[in-house]
């Protein structure tokens, strides 16, 4: 193949590349509009397709309306920064509380809160966020519903998604 022919080939292939790259843009808008999350990755109940029981629905409502979601994340996934907090400098996630806490312990934690968030570096500043106590904002029934919802956040056993 002559040199000039090769140059033309490179030029044309460059244009083919441009075409392919433009096509990726259309795919991008499509994908992000669908808000795709594969079913095997949905470990929490907060956006799942399976209908929640009445109790869990009430719990979810409390979780969202009382702004638990704002600090602990949707579905208790966590991810909110809390500088110098001992819990990994973040607000702890809640989707595994079923494993680490008994029901009475959870009820107590929600009612009393954690007024003094333990510091990671004792000489550093107090963490900006702390768990408020909700005993004056929720009835006992509401706390029970909320605890039931939190326990339901534990991901069930799943396959490797292979």
């Amino acid at each position: 193949m002559s040199i000039n022919a090769q140059k033309y080939l490179v030029g044309i292939m460059g244009l083919i590349l441009v075409g392919s790259v433009i096509a990726t843009g259309y795919l991008d808008t499509q994908r992000r509009k669908k808000e795709n999350v594969p079913p095997s990755a949905k470990a929490s109940a907060s956006a799942s397709a399976a209908p929640l029981s009445r109790e869990l629905q009430r719990g979810l409502k409390i979780y969202q309306e009382l702004s638990c979601e704002t600090c602990h994340g949707p579905g208790g996934k966590g991810g909110v920064h809390n500088f110098n907090a001992q819990s990994g400098q973040e607000v702890p996630p809640l989707n595994k509380v079923a494993e680490g806490y008994t029901k009475p312990e959870l009820i107590e934690k929600i009612k009393v809160g954690v007024p003094d968030e333990p510091k990671l570096d004792p000489n550093g500043p107090a963490p900006p966020l702390h768990m408020p106590g909700f005993k004056d904002m929720l009835t006992d029934d509401q706390v029970n519903d909320l605890v039931a919802y939190l326990i339901s956040l534990k991901p069930k056993g799943e396959d490797s998604g292979f």
Binding site: Q6, S20, T24, L27, A41, S160
Partner: peptide, 28 residues
């Protein structure tokens, strides 16, 4: 020029491959 041709073949192949087989995530 030969290397550029090979390079462009790879880029075009990759871009199109990703469009038809986009990545996913398994269970956490």
């Amino acid at each position: 020029l030969r290397e550029m041709i090979v390079g462009l073949v790879i880029l075009i192949a990759l871009v199109n491959f990703v469009m038809f087989f986009p990545p996913t995530v398994g269970a956490p």
